[in-house]
Amino acid sequence: MKTSIEIIKPSQEEMARFMVHEVTDTLQNVLTILEEKKLFLVGEENGAHYKIPFSDILYIEVVDKKSFIYTKDLVCQSAEKLYQLEEKLLPHKFIRVGKSLLLNIEAIKAVSPTFSGRFEATLINEERVAVSRKYVPDLKKGLGMRKRL
C-alpha cells in the first residue's frame, strides 16, 4: 500500500484520507484509533484519581469483581467492567489472555509455554502473567508468532 504524509500549518485541521478496495479489520482498528479523542483510562487509588495513558498500562485484571489497572509504578481500581475496557483497548494492542485479564502486547518482554498448553508472559517490569490455553492462539496472532510454538 502506498502512503504519504504532508506536514501542515498548526492552524489547519488534521485529516486522514484512505483510498481502499475494502474496509478490513486492520483498517477499522486504525480508524477507531484516529477517531478516538480520549487515549487514557481513569483509575482510583486511595481516594486520588489518576489519568493513565493506554501506553502506560501493562495489564488489567479483575479480582473479586473489581477491575484493576496495572502500570510499572501504580495499581489503580477502575469503575468499568472488563468487557467495557476490552472494547476501548482492543484497537490499541491489548488482547484478552484470560477470563479476567487484558494484556498490553507492547508490555510483553517474552513468552514461554508452560504446562498443558498454557503460556506465561514475562512483562517489561519482569512480572509474569499466565495466558490461558483458550487464549494462546490470540496471543500468538497478536505477537505475529508462527503456529509451531
Rank of each mutant, 00 (worst) to 15 (best):
L39Q: 14
F119Q: 13
V30R: 06
N46D: 15
R128S: 07
G117D: 13
T26P: 04
Y50E: 04
T32I: 08
K88F: 00
E36H: 06
K81G: 08
P137E: 12
I108M: 06
I124R: 09
G43T: 11
G144W: 02
F68Y: 15
E120K: 14
K9W: 02
A121S: 14
V63P: 07
G47E: 03
V136E: 06
I52A: 02
K99P: 01
E36N: 15
L123W: 01
T32L: 13
V97I: 15
K51E: 15
E120L: 06
K66A: 12
K88R: 14
N29W: 01
E126V: 00
I69M: 10
K2A: 09
A121R: 10
E36T: 15
D138A: 15
F68R: 08
R133P: 06
K2P: 02
C76V: 12
G43I: 12
T26C: 07
D138Y: 05
L123D: 02
I5F: 14
V111I: 14
S100R: 12
A110K: 12
I52E: 05
L139T: 09
E6G: 01
P91E: 04
M145I: 02
L90P: 00
K72E: 11
A79I: 07
M145T: 02
E127Y: 05
K66F: 10
K72Y: 03
T3H: 12
E45C: 04
T122F: 01
V23R: 13
V75R: 09
Q84R: 08
R96G: 08
L39H: 14
V42L: 15
V62F: 04
F54M: 00
T71F: 13
L89K: 04
V75M: 02
P91C: 10
L123I: 00
A110N: 13
L149V: 13
L27A: 01
E120R: 05
K51D: 08
K38G: 03
T32R: 09
K9T: 13
E87L: 07
P53H: 11
D73S: 12
K99L: 04
